[in-house]
């Protein structure tokens, strides 16, 4: 379209490959390669092994994976509920009220995750809400961090939702609660599942706030990856990273399957 000559096109493609492959494709490939190796002291890794994976699905690593999964699922479900509720309530408010509510729920996106971690730590380390040292403080922080994203995607979807469906339903005699359950939420379902996938992925990879908060018995996968690489076990860390990526991808894949089944238009 833009470049018509053959050489021009090839120049563009070569430029693209030269930039794209080393910057984006190579890092992921390198982690994958390292996760199957025992040494890397030359151009390429050596000593092929699957031992890191064998270790990654046992003991501490397995526990970190389940910790991450439980945290991510819990945080996503709560965030989706609160975020959707807030988005629906905001849409019913007037222009001013909606702006205030939207701004409030956007705020956690702008605040650094480390600061969210610090704030939660300060607030919940003292009675009456003593959560520090329990898993709940981690889950709570994750929920705060992903609620903003849930709210953002749902309110964007609500803005795109044509009011004519709601009005058609109302003209047929459906009360607002019936319209919400039978028309609005089903029509929002694709966006809701997309938001759920986003929340899950964010929570799975969350490190900043978690580093401030995690108790010894609730160590999510990213923290374990950090402690592994920090003490020099780069290959174990890579295997754990691949497990983390795979789990995230699987969840996203599952969610996108629901999405395609749920999108009607």
């Amino acid at each position: 379209m833009l470049v018509h000559s053959r050489t021009g096109k090839w120049t563009a493609w070569v430029l693209f490959t030269v930039l794209f492959v080393p910057l984006f494709a190579l890092p992921l490939l390198v982690i994958l390669a390292a996760s199957f190796s025992t040494h890397w002291s030359g151009a390429f890794p050596s000593g092929p092994t699957t031992a890191h994976y064998a270790a990654a699905v046992r003991g501490e690593s397995l526990q970190a994976l389940t910790t991450s999964l439980v945290t991510a699922v819990t945080a996503s479900v709560v965030a989706l509920t609160v975020g959707t509720w807030a988005a629906l309530a905001a849409a019913a408010l007037g222009k001013k009220g909606k702006r205030v509510l939207d701004a409030l729920f956007m705020l956690p996106v702008a605040v650094p995750s480390v600061v969210v971690g610090l704030a939660v730590l300060v607030a919940f380390s003292q009675p009456p809400m003593l959560l520090n040292g329990t898993r709940w403080i981690v889950i709570l922080a994750h929920t705060v961090l992903v609620t903003a994203f849930a709210h953002q995607s749902v309110s964007a979807a609500l803005r795109r939702l044509d009011p004519m469906y709601e009005q058609a339903a109302a003209s047929l005699g459906a009360r607002p609660s019936y319209v919400l359950l039978r028309v609005k939420l089903p029509l929002l379902l694709p966006s809701l599942t997309a938001a759920a996938g986003l929340c899950f992925a964010l929570s799975m990879g969350e490190l900043s706030a978690t580093m401030m908060l995690y108790p010894p018995d609730w160590m999510p996968l990213p923290v374990l990856i950090f402690t592994a690489t920090d003490r020099g076990s780069l290959f174990t860390g890579s295997a754990l990273a691949v497990v983390l990526m795979a789990a995230t991808l699987l969840a996203l894949l599952a969610v996108s399957r629901i999405r395609t089944r749920a999108s009607y238009r």
């Binding site: 969350e206 490190l207 890579s238 991808l249 996203l252």
Partner: peptide, 11 residues
């Protein structure tokens, strides 16, 4: 959708 620290690990 991947966490940022993976990049540092790869580097």
């Amino acid at each position: 959708s991947f966490p940022s620290f993976l990049i540092t690990l790869a580097l």
